[in-house]
Design a protein around this nucleic acid. Structure first.
Lengths: 345, 345
DNA sequence: TAGCCCCTGGACAACGTTGTCAGCTGCCGT
DNA sequence: ACGGCAGCTGACAACGTTGTCCAGGGGCTA
């Protein structure tokens, strides 16, 4: 009776529980649970009474308690570098779609390319007992994840490999893509080609640099160190790097941009130059076909990266227990014009 | 003793609990809790023993249990239309940053512009007992949220107003921005101006249409119905709508595109035409300045929308209890060329 | 008609944490 | 030397749900 009263005149901020619903419907606690979960074994009449009580009280099941009891959270964590980067938009959406298809929610965090923040986020997600993690790593040592993985948190790394642990990984073929991009420029007559990329500690960045060097070496071309500018993707840095390699004693006639941020800035810089400079960028981007010249790119399929990673993750959650896999997705050169300009200078 | 054994030789998938840690460190449960939460009143020596046990067992606090006990989840939900839309990237990042500053995690979901899915997501988040919600509504009736709000779930609507309930709302000035855009075209000599926008049931879309009509009316210009094409933002639909209004008996000399998706398709369509057609788009987008002609836009600050909304949300969570607010952020016309073309035809 | 089984419903424990409260130790002041 | 006090520590209940198990009643079969 005091329960009923409590259930009826609740104060702000307190929610009705199954106990309240049961009291109001005049049934047992477990019967309410059965109705809420659509379990069999409840008379239509009883079910109706319970439903009415639920509606009247505005009851909503407390998933925290449910999770505590069941051990599974039906949620996965996604840690990426920056939600606002257009490269990660399609990736997160793909992960979300797969999660949704498996009835899981997505918890999202940005590491801002800071290893400490990545770890903090990942561990916060583990404390929430997410069933699995999709991580675009910022750091290069993920041993801190070992106890979590041992405890059953499925983990998949995307876009960059895990550091010092063995785990499922989905990558784009950065090396091959970069090599193809630079070979393309060489095939169009370029001999002095510049590379502007991301920080070399980032795996994709160093792979792309390696691809650049491999293509140059395969063609027997020397690489002057002033042509190679790994570093931040901040526009000012990229602008300065481009200016340096375009103006030196042996100026480049073509640029290979290591990711979409760099490409966009490179387009702006080249636009201001009197002479045409060829450009191939890693990563496709919207409107690449609309600027003039249209931008030749090495496209990687961000959505496919996300889908594949999430697929691997749920495969693990379904109990598959074979050794960690490493999937490498191919890239695709899309020639649009900027990469086919003849060398000038 | 059996506890200790259980704690030491755990099977895969079972995690150590505070009880295990306590047994191993030879202390009480509550002492472990105190150490884990950094509470005062623990001898350095005891704390060290507990820390060692924690490390040895790989213990991580179970936040589900903590949440159940404490009632607060330190997480907020964000429901938007599509994570992959470049408009929402900066918005979600801004929300995430504010959440992070308040020590909260972000749970993320896409409604795909489907009211049923929006409701499903929102209620799933409420079941998780998120402390608050930031919602970009897809539906136009949010009375289903009333019990949640009454129960204390702080809720802020962004980009579009809530339907049939009173809640904090943060909007861009769609009407004013659209009117300014169209007035800008009129000022540059256009008399026949087309409007291609999103589904009219979407608030921003109908507001922008209203702004279009207001600007035309203010200039004393008639609007032929064939110039007005609200509907899906799918490229084919936009393409067909543009073709129709550019080829009819009284073809338009300028287009006003109701959002960034439409603008991008419009750029592609106009590019194929022999004669120049002026264009102003709602929403700024990366590279708008790099196509030729550069695209004149009405810019709205997506990040600021997100920041403002999250700010309002945490204000509520901090206990502020004044009546719901409606914040309207100004837009800004950025003239780049495409909107200043003279009428032809 | 008797006996059995199935169907429905409820009591109770457990999930892992935190808040409350009480007990214990050792030290201080007188 | 004794009361008291302060500082640590631990036992216990509670958070809201689900799984297990048992009880009772009604229908069906022999």
């Amino acid at each position: 009776m005091s329960d009923t009263a409590q259930g009826t005149s609740r104060r702000y901020g307190t929610r009705p529980t199954m106990k309240d619903v049961a009291a109001r419907a005049g049934v047992g606690l477990k019967t309410v649970s059965r109705v809420v979960n659509g379990e069999a074994g409840v008379t239509p009449d009883t079910e109706r009474r319970v439903q009415e009580a639920i509606t009247a009280l505005g009851f909503r099941r407390n998933d925290s308690a449910r999770i505590l009891r069941k051990g599974r959270t039906a949620s996965i964590g996604l840690v990426l570098e920056d939600l606002a980067d257009p490269f990660y938009g399609p990736l997160s959406r793909a992960v979300e779609e797969v999660a949704r298809a498996h009835g899981a929610l997505l918890i999202n965090g940005s590491s801002a390319e800071d290893p400490a923040r990545e770890q903090e986020l990942v561990l916060a997600l583990c404390a929430r007992r997410v069933d699995g993690l999709v991580v675009i790593p910022a750091g290069d040592d993920h041993r801190y994840l070992e106890p979590e993985i041992a405890a059953g948190v499925a983990t998949v790394f995307v876009d960059r490999p895990a550091g010092r642990i063995d785990a499922d990984t989905v990558l784009s073929d950065s090396f091959g893509g970069a090599r193809e991009a630079v070979a393309h420029l060489i095939a169009h007559g370029h001999r002095r080609i510049g590379f502007i990329g991301d920080q070399p500690r980032i795996h994709t960045a160093s792979e792309r640099l390696r691809g650049y060097r491999a293509a140059m070496a395969a063609a027997g071309l020397p690489v002057e160190e002033s042509w190679v500018a790994p570093g931040s993707t901040a526009p000012e840095r990229v602008r300065a790097a481009a200016a340096a390699m375009l103006e030196g004693p042996s100026p480049v006639t073509a640029l290979f941009a290591g990711n979409n941020r760099v490409t966009v800035t490179a387009v702006r810089v080249l636009r201001e130059l009197p002479r045409p400079v060829a450009l191939v960028g890693f990563d496709d981007f919207e409107l690449a076909d609309l600027v003039r010249p249209a931008i030749t790119v090495v496209a990687q399929d961000a959505a496919q990266l996300g889908r594949t990673a999430a697929g691997l993750l749920f495969r693990r959650l379904d109990g598959v227990d074979d050794p960690p896999r490493r999937v490498e997705l191919p890239t695709r050169l899309i020639a649009r014009g900027s990469g086919e300009l003849a060398p000038v200078g």
